[in-house]
């Protein structure tokens, strides 16, 4: 499973009723709260073995699965360099 699919799988596992695409704004679903935001960040850090610095904890980085994928890819490439 690629990065985007793994992120989507986590979101739909938590919200089985959600039918979202990789470019859909998850905040438009109406039930994202700080508890899920914390879970989402913890999951991404564990799943992809990255640490998300404070300055990357911006809403635009988490709005869509595609944006989260780009964040993960960026953090991973920074680690590799």
């Amino acid at each position: 499973m690629d990065t985007t699919a793994r992120i989507l799988a986590f979101i739909t596992n938590r919200f089985p009723q959600a039918e979202i695409t990789d470019t859909e704004d998850i905040f438009s679903l109406g039930y994202i709260n700080s508890l899920f935001a914390m879970e989402l960040v913890m999951h991404i850090e564990k799943e992809f073995t990255v640490t998300i610095p404070n300055d990357e904890l911006r809403i635009d980085n988490f709005r869509t699965a595609k944006a989260m994928t780009e964040l993960v890819d960026g953090l991973r490439s920074a680690v590799v360099r």
Binding site: N33, S34, A37, M38, V41, N54, D55, L57, R58, I59, F62
Partner: peptide
């Protein structure tokens, strides 16, 4: 301490 934007609730 921490982010001031959307993630501050975290």
């Amino acid at each position: 301490l921490g982010p001031s934007g959307f993630a501050s609730g975290m």
